[in-house]
Design a protein around this nucleic acid. Structure first.
Ligand SMILES: [Zn+2]
Ligand SMILES: [Zn+2]
Ligand SMILES: [Zn+2]
Ligand SMILES: [Zn+2]
Ligand SMILES: [Zn+2]
Ligand SMILES: [Zn+2]
Length: 989
DNA sequence: GAGTTTGAAACT
DNA sequence: CAGTTTCAAACTC
């Protein structure tokens, strides 16, 4: 397909002539090879980067790229962007479309971070160039960033960061706004891969590493996401891999950071610069997503890091190779899994940092996975065997640290993380993700899986403005995401990796200078985390299966595909525009992606502003709205200091609001409790409860008693490790019963998705927006670190895993967790945010949260953070915590804040609800219903820029007026209308 | 895949 | 807060 293109690409880079024009070109140049100027960063990075450069091609996209490079599917994206086509073709289309689509470059290796995405890629080359140009050379860009970084540094909080980022971005680039995506295609012969990367960088990072970070920095400002997609041919891949390796090496050895950072910068720069484009790096976070197609196709999207990519690639090769080509693919994960390889996921954090996650699968051990918390940055790389891979690039500092070099590294990471807990560790095959976990053990896997699966998104950043604007006019494609899997055809996969830049902070650790940072980091992480990744259960399962099998790549593919179809899917919203809690994606704090079948969706990066604004509104109404659904009680032993200390009892998990089942007797998934894999608790108002996981009455209490007895109990999110624990326990207790998933072998999801057949997989990506950093921070800060660790794990897990079918929310994550042990990250993120808001007040927030931090990293993009919020949080009044508990117990919130409330099991949900003043329904932007953006991307672009400036991601929440104003309904679509009645009528019984 | 059931979310 | 409507998932066929 692309071959021609490829060539072009190559040429382009090198030869700039033609290229120059295109931004893309520029980017490439920057990236790779380096420009003379900046070389330093670049230099190293480049080498690594190089890979990309070649890879990237320029923009080719224009032309036909269609062919398929990408397969990405991003339906959503497409839709927004171009459209329609989502699936493979679509991907291409996207690219093709000039304007709209953004290209993402992957730096993958580099920084992983990297991020450059251009929103539009159309211009591809030109754009790139432009981007840079604006600023001038990369160097300039960098410089800017640096500055920015400085800003960022200062800020701790996300908001600040955000703002700064924005400023920076603005300043530097004016254009940055949107995320840009670049797609590169390497393609090879047969198959191509695409990788997309999204990176979000957060300012924070900058601070830390400054130097190192600087590079990263993406910052934030706007969040741009950069997605890169590359199709890589086999060769390229290999190359890439090499680079990657080097990179790592470097990192480890010397300056990892730089390399990473440099790369990042480059990317950013590229992205950012362009004025027109949006390249700007976003600061906030960049996430990369990678998707691989897998075998056949390999597509990769990656955002991620190079490393991951490389890893993947490597693995692929080794393994099956199926396609040798590399594979590329998938990023992360999973696929790798197949291979054994490891997958890595990186997330860049948007916000601040980027985190990278890697999942590597190594054949042997899976393990890997670890995810780093953003906090620490650590990413975890796992290494797979083969390679060292890892990536971590992401963040500079982090990288260094993380670098996982080898497998061992994992360990290290862990340690770092720390604490995390063992749970995290679970090596598992990462790829698999939740499913595996679930299947296998939950315990082990969790994290890994999670990571692999998901994708990441970034979040951050777009400002609302952008969103609005964009939405109106067009959509940006930016994000993409989708990519993933698209796969389409074949399969697979999609995995995502997300990296967060998270902050480098940690990494930089040294920087540490400031404790604050840490805190920040945490926050950041949370934010960062945003990316959530999610996989669908099915995917996991599939993978899981696959793994077991060995490489069934082919099978996989098919399955995947099939799965994706179903499995992947996430929401199917028709009228809510995905801006209400009705939408699972939105509720989970992630952006809609390919797997979604939603109509008129605004839950996309392009509409970030809208999304965040809406989220805030909802949050204002109900602070717990985005909190994790499940709370787990954890007991901590005082002695234990941290992490370990907490133990969760199995049953301790409870749904934050409880269910209100009447007819299902809590025996079906209609029951939220059951769906989440938890027994009904006091908060449930169910009638005739027969929840296999635990009946309302006794169940809870009993357990509680127990718990209480224990030293400290906390409620944590399910996401947390604990949850996992809990899950596990539950499993033990009620093995089958409890988890719905379990019930069906595949789990419902699986089943559902395929019903058996294939499963799916898909991972979906989820991007989260993250929530507002602030909240997160708060939360995190409150608590301790130790928890975090676990969270991370969880988060990762959760994210990945969870998915049941769709996205589980955080809560749901639990389910997954249950099965698997993983926690979900995402939720956490969300939670945190929320927590911050509401909870904050409560005591709960304090402690609980730290956990969240970690998780977040993993997560894909979330938007969650609501800008809004500020956290003022809440106070918590509402929730009652138990008096006792406070002191002794901690409740953790799973993701959000909720925790506290939840903690009390008793306290019913009611408490939860907050008050929200506003009651009105939130009106989403409406748009036009469908298509919001679809076509138009261009406008958006321009618009965006604007937006960016004006608003920061987080905006103030405030108001949020809807841009759109509301009418929600606009659409005629009413078709349903009828519905209502029936329910009642019929209903019931 | 269409249609029904269900209970949460949204709204009044 | 209660009651109603709206919504999309879960489930059924
Ligand atoms: Zn939706
Ligand atoms: Zn969706
Ligand atoms: Zn949607
Ligand atoms: Zn129930
Ligand atoms: Zn219940
Ligand atoms: Zn019940």
């Amino acid at each position: 397909m692309d071959s021609p293109e490829r060539s072009q690409i190559v040429t382009s880079k090198p030869s700039s002539p033609p290229v120059q024009d295109s931004p893309f070109f520029n980017c490439i140049i920057n990236l790779s090879p380096i420009k003379p100027g900046n070389a330093r960063h670049a230099a190293q990075g480049f080498s690594e980067l190089n890979f990309p450069s070649p890879v990237f091609t320029s923009p080719r996209m224009n032309s036909q790229r269609e062919t398929g490079f990408l397969k990405r599917r991003s339906k959503c994206l497409h839709s927004s962007i171009a459209d329609p086509a989502h699936e493979h073709g679509s991907g291409e289309k996207i690219l093709a479309e000039d304007s709209h689509v953004s290209e993402r470059l992957i730096t993958q290796s580099m920084a992983g971070l990297v991020p450059c995405s251009h929103k539009e890629f159309d211009n591809t080359a030109s754009e790139q160039v432009q981007r840079r140009s604006p600023s001038g050379s990369v160097e300039e860009y960098l410089a800017d960033t640096m500055e920015a970084g400085g800003f960022a540094n200062s800020t701790d909080s996300g908001d600040l960061r955000m703002k700064q980022a924005h400023e920076v971005s603005q300043a530097t680039q004016s254009g940055s706004s949107g995320p840009k995506e670049t797609i590169m295609k390497l393609d090879d012969d047969d198959e191509t891969k695409v990788m997309e990367t999204e990176v979000a960088a957060s300012l924070t990072l900058l601070e830390q590493a400054e130097e190192d970070l600087l590079a990263l920095e993406p910052v934030s400002g706007e969040q741009n996401h950069h997605h890169l997609v590359a199709d890589v041919a086999a060769e390229p891949l290999s190359i890439a891999s090499n680079r990657m390796e080097h990179a790592f090496v470097n990192f480890d050895e010397e300056r990892p950071a730089r390399s990473g950072s440099q790369d990042v910068r480059l990317q950013n720069a590229e992205g950012g610069q362009q004025g027109g484009l949006d390249c700007t790096p976003q600061l906030p976070s960049e996430s990369l997503q990678i998707i691989q197609a897998n075998e056949n196709y390999n597509e990769i999207s990656g955002a991620i890091s190079n490393g991951s990519v490389e890893n993947n690639m490597l693995y692929d090769f080794e393994e099956g190779h199926q396609h040798q080509r590399g594979t590329r693919r998938r990023c992360l994960q999973f696929e790798a899994a197949q291979a054994q390889g490891s997958t890595i996921c990186n997330n860049l954090s948007s916000w601040n940092t980027t985190n990278i996650l890697l999942n590597s699968r190594s054949p042997t051990s899976p393990t890997d996975l670890e995810i780093m918390d953003s906090l620490h940055l650590q990413s975890r790389s796992t290494s797979s065997n083969r390679q060292p891979v890892t990536f971590s690039r992401p963040i500079t500092s982090r990288l260094t640290i993380l670098p996982v070099k080898t497998p061992e590294s994992h360990e290290v990471d862990r340690s770092i993380q720390n604490s995390v807990n063992s749970s995290m560790k679970a090596p598992m095959p990462s790829g698999i993700g939740l499913h595996l976990n679930s299947i296998v053990n939950a315990a082990t896997m969790r994290c890994d899986t999670a990571a692999s699966t998901k994708f990441v998104e970034k979040s951050p950043s777009l400002t609302e403005h952008d969103l609005h604007e964009d939405s109106k006019s067009s959509s940006l494609p930016t994000r993409v995401v989708e990519k993933f899997s698209d796969n389409m055809d074949d399969d697979q996969q999609e995995s995502l990796a997300i990296v967060r830049a998270s902050s480098a902070t940690f990494q930089s650790s040294h920087d540490v200078k400031l404790m604050n940072e840490t805190l920040q980091l945490e926050l950041i992480e949370h934010h960062m985390t945003p990316f959530d990744e999610r996989k669908t259960v099915s995917e996991n399962t599939d993978r899981f299966e696959e793994f077991n099998q060995s490489y069934p790549k082919k099978k996989r593919k098919k399955t995947l595909n099939s799965i994706e179809g179903e499995g992947c899917k996430r929401c199917n919203c028709k009228r809510s525009k995905c801006l209400k809690l009705y939408c699972e994606c939105f509720a989970a704090g992630i952006y809609c992606a390919e797997p979604c079948s939603c109509q008129g969706c605004f839950n996309k990066p392009e509409y970030e502003d809208t999304v965040l604004g809406t989220r805030q509104q909802i949050e204002s109404r109900d602070p717990l709205a985005f909190a994790p659904k499940i709370l787990r009680r954890v007991t901590e032993s005082p002695a234990n200091s941290g992490e370990d200390g907490n133990q969760v009892t199995p049953s301790s998990a409870r749904h934050k609001k409880g269910c209100n089942c009447k007819k299902s007797m809590c025996l079906k998934k209609y029951c939220e409790c059951y769906q989440a894999g938890v027994g009904c608790s006091d908060g449930c108002r169910c009638e005739g409860c027969k929840n296999p996981c635990g009946i309302k009455e006794g169940y809870d209490e009993t357990r509680e008693m127990t718990y209480k007895k224990t030293d400290g109990e906390k409620w944590e999110d399910s996401s947390d490790d604990k949850l996992d624990m809990a899950d596990i326990r539950s499993d033990l207790l009620h093995p089958d019963l409890c988890h719905p998933h379990n019930l069906s072998p595949l789990t419902p999801l699986f089943q559902s998705s395929n019903h058996g057949k294939d499963i799916t997989k898909s991972r979906v990506l989820a991007r989260r927006y993250d929530p507002s950093p602030e909240s997160e921070r708060q939360v995190k800060t409150g608590q301790g670190t130790s928890h975090r660790v676990s969270y991370d794990l969880e988060s990762e897990c959760s994210t990945a895993g969870r998915v049941d079918q769709t996205l589980p929310r955080q809560d749901e994550l639990l389910d997954l967790c249950d099965h698997t042990p993983l926690p979900n990250v995402p939720s956490r993120v969300m939670a945190s945010s929320s927590a911050s808001n509401t909870a904050g007040r409560g005591k709960a927030s304090r402690a609980q949260f730290h956990g969240s931090v970690s998780l977040s990293s993993v997560a894909p993009l979330r938007w969650r953070g609501s800008p809004v919020t500020p956290l003022p949080r809440l106070s918590g009044n509402k929730f009652p915590r138990e008096p006792d508990s406070d002191s002794s117990r901690l409740y953790e919130i799973q993701e959000d804040d909720t925790p506290e409330i939840l903690k009390d099991t008793r306290t019913p949900i009611k408490a939860v609800k907050a008050n929200s003043p506003n009651q009105k329904r939130v009106s989403p932007p409406q748009n036009h219903t469908h298509e919001p953006r679809s076509s138009c991307s261009p406008s958006l672009k321009s618009g965006r820029k604007f937006v960016l400036r004006s608003i920061s991601t987080f905006p103030p929440l405030t108001p949020y007026s809807d841009p759109r104003g509301g009418s929600r309904d606009k659409t005629h679509m009413k078709m349903f209308p009828v519905k209502n009645s029936h329910r009642d009528a019929g209903v019931m019984i």
